[in-house]
Protein backbone atom coordinates (compact mmCIF):
# COMPACT_ATOMS: atom_id res chain seq x y z
CA UNK A 1 0.00 0.00 0.00
CA UNK A 2 2.85 2.32 0.83
CA UNK A 3 4.17 1.68 -2.65
CA UNK A 4 0.93 2.78 -4.24
CA UNK A 5 0.95 5.86 -2.14
CA UNK A 6 4.28 7.11 -3.32
CA UNK A 7 3.29 6.47 -6.91
CA UNK A 8 0.21 8.55 -6.44
CA UNK A 9 2.14 11.45 -5.13
CA UNK A 10 4.16 11.34 -8.32
CA UNK A 11 1.09 11.07 -10.44
CA UNK A 12 -0.35 14.12 -8.79
CA UNK A 13 2.66 16.27 -9.10
CA UNK A 14 2.57 15.29 -12.74
CA UNK A 15 -1.00 16.45 -13.07
CA UNK A 16 -0.19 19.77 -11.56
CA UNK A 17 2.12 20.37 -14.44
CA UNK A 18 -0.81 20.38 -16.82
CA UNK A 19 -1.97 23.70 -15.54
CA UNK A 20 -4.77 22.57 -13.28
CA UNK A 21 -5.57 24.89 -10.51
CA UNK A 22 -4.53 23.90 -7.03
CA UNK A 23 -7.46 21.87 -5.87
CA UNK A 24 -8.18 19.43 -8.67
CA UNK A 25 -6.40 16.11 -8.33
CA UNK A 26 -7.43 13.68 -11.06
CA UNK A 27 -6.81 10.07 -10.05
CA UNK A 28 -4.71 8.08 -12.49
CA UNK A 29 -6.69 5.37 -14.25
CA UNK A 30 -4.33 2.55 -13.35
CA UNK A 31 -4.86 3.31 -9.69
CA UNK A 32 -8.63 3.27 -10.00
CA UNK A 33 -8.46 -0.08 -11.76
CA UNK A 34 -6.03 -1.53 -9.22
CA UNK A 35 -8.28 -0.56 -6.35
CA UNK A 36 -11.33 -1.95 -8.13
CA UNK A 37 -9.73 -5.32 -8.75
CA UNK A 38 -8.44 -5.43 -5.20
CA UNK A 39 -11.99 -4.86 -3.99
CA UNK A 40 -13.33 -7.53 -6.29
CA UNK A 41 -10.68 -9.97 -5.10
CA UNK A 42 -11.55 -9.29 -1.47
CA UNK A 43 -15.21 -9.89 -2.25
CA UNK A 44 -14.38 -13.28 -3.71
CA UNK A 45 -12.25 -14.01 -0.69
CA UNK A 46 -15.01 -13.20 1.76
CA UNK A 47 -17.57 -15.27 -0.14
CA UNK A 48 -15.07 -18.10 -0.32
CA UNK A 49 -14.25 -18.07 3.38
CA UNK A 50 -17.96 -18.13 4.21
CA UNK A 51 -18.02 -21.69 2.85
CA UNK A 52 -16.08 -22.89 5.85
CA UNK A 53 -17.35 -23.16 9.34
CA UNK A 54 -14.87 -21.13 11.33
CA UNK A 55 -17.03 -20.51 14.38
CA UNK A 56 -16.54 -17.14 15.95
CA UNK A 57 -13.56 -16.42 13.75
CA UNK A 58 -15.97 -16.15 10.85
CA UNK A 59 -17.45 -12.89 12.14
CA UNK A 60 -14.04 -11.44 12.85
CA UNK A 61 -12.66 -12.46 9.45
CA UNK A 62 -15.68 -11.21 7.49
CA UNK A 63 -15.66 -7.89 9.25
CA UNK A 64 -11.91 -7.58 8.86
CA UNK A 65 -12.20 -8.07 5.11
CA UNK A 66 -15.14 -5.66 4.98
CA UNK A 67 -13.13 -3.07 6.87
CA UNK A 68 -10.19 -3.41 4.47
CA UNK A 69 -12.58 -2.94 1.56
CA UNK A 70 -14.22 0.04 3.22
CA UNK A 71 -10.79 1.50 3.88
CA UNK A 72 -9.84 1.14 0.22
CA UNK A 73 -13.04 2.83 -0.90
CA UNK A 74 -12.61 5.71 1.52
CA UNK A 75 -8.90 6.22 0.93
CA UNK A 76 -8.81 5.99 -2.87
CA UNK A 77 -12.25 6.25 -4.41
CA UNK A 78 -13.26 8.93 -1.96
CA UNK A 79 -9.85 10.50 -2.31
CA UNK A 80 -9.46 10.98 1.42
CA UNK A 81 -5.72 10.32 1.35
CA UNK A 82 -5.19 13.59 -0.46
CA UNK A 83 -8.01 15.50 1.11
CA UNK A 84 -7.99 18.19 3.76
CA UNK A 85 -7.37 16.68 7.22
CA UNK A 86 -10.60 18.23 8.49
CA UNK A 87 -12.65 15.97 6.23
CA UNK A 88 -10.82 12.94 7.54
CA UNK A 89 -11.42 14.11 11.09
CA UNK A 90 -15.11 14.50 10.33
CA UNK A 91 -15.59 10.99 8.99
CA UNK A 92 -13.41 9.44 11.68
CA UNK A 93 -15.32 11.26 14.38
CA UNK A 94 -18.53 9.80 13.02
CA UNK A 95 -17.07 6.31 13.42
CA UNK A 96 -15.95 7.16 16.95
CA UNK A 97 -19.41 8.33 17.89
CA UNK A 98 -21.00 5.26 16.32
CA UNK A 99 -18.73 3.07 18.42
CA UNK A 100 -19.66 5.05 21.52
CA UNK A 101 -23.32 4.51 20.75
CA UNK A 102 -22.88 0.81 20.05
CA UNK A 103 -20.48 0.35 22.93
CA UNK A 104 -22.65 1.77 25.69
CA UNK A 105 -25.81 0.14 24.39
CA UNK A 106 -24.14 -3.26 24.13
CA UNK A 107 -22.56 -2.85 27.54
CA UNK A 108 -26.03 -2.39 28.93
CA UNK A 109 -27.47 -5.26 26.88
CA UNK A 110 -24.87 -7.65 28.28
CA UNK A 111 -26.07 -6.76 31.73
CA UNK A 112 -29.77 -7.23 31.26
CA UNK A 113 -29.98 -10.06 28.75
CA UNK A 114 -30.58 -12.61 31.46
CA UNK A 115 -33.37 -10.64 33.05
CA UNK A 116 -35.48 -10.92 29.93
CA UNK A 117 -38.66 -12.84 30.36
CA UNK A 118 -38.28 -16.08 28.48
CA UNK A 119 -41.49 -17.75 29.49
CA UNK A 120 -44.29 -15.24 29.75
CA UNK A 121 -46.71 -17.72 31.26
CA UNK A 122 -44.41 -18.81 34.02
CA UNK A 123 -45.06 -17.88 37.57
CA UNK A 124 -43.30 -14.66 38.46
CA UNK A 125 -42.37 -15.83 41.89
CA UNK A 126 -40.47 -18.78 40.49
CA UNK A 127 -38.12 -16.29 38.91
CA UNK A 128 -37.67 -14.24 41.99
CA UNK A 129 -33.93 -14.77 42.04
CA UNK A 130 -32.22 -12.17 39.86
CA UNK A 131 -29.50 -13.67 37.73
CA UNK A 132 -28.33 -10.95 35.44
CA UNK A 133 -27.07 -8.27 37.76
CA UNK A 134 -23.44 -7.60 36.99
CA UNK A 135 -22.97 -6.62 40.58
CA UNK A 136 -22.80 -9.99 42.25
CA UNK A 137 -23.94 -10.10 45.77
CA UNK A 138 -21.44 -11.01 48.38
CA UNK A 139 -21.16 -14.73 48.93
Amino acid sequence: MADTHSHTADAHSGDHGHGHSGFSHPMPIWMLLTVFFALLGLTFLTVFQAQFDLGNMEIVLSLLIATIKAGLVIAFFMHLLWDKPLNAIAILSSLIFVSLFLGFTLMDAQGYNERLIMDPNGDLLERSQPKGSLVKKSE
Binding site: L124, L125, S128, S133, V135, S138
Partner: peptide
Protein backbone atom coordinates in the same frame (compact mmCIF):
# COMPACT_ATOMS: atom_id res chain seq x y z
CA UNK B 1 -30.32 -0.51 46.58
CA UNK B 2 -29.12 -2.80 43.79
CA UNK B 3 -27.68 -5.65 45.84
CA UNK B 4 -30.56 -7.75 47.06
CA UNK B 5 -29.98 -9.44 50.43
CA UNK B 6 -30.64 -13.13 51.00
CA UNK B 7 -33.60 -14.32 52.97
CA UNK B 8 -36.28 -11.92 51.86
CA UNK B 9 -40.04 -11.75 51.98
CA UNK B 10 -40.99 -12.15 48.33
CA UNK B 11 -43.83 -10.35 46.65
CA UNK B 12 -44.64 -10.40 42.97
Amino acid sequence: MAIIPDDTVDVA
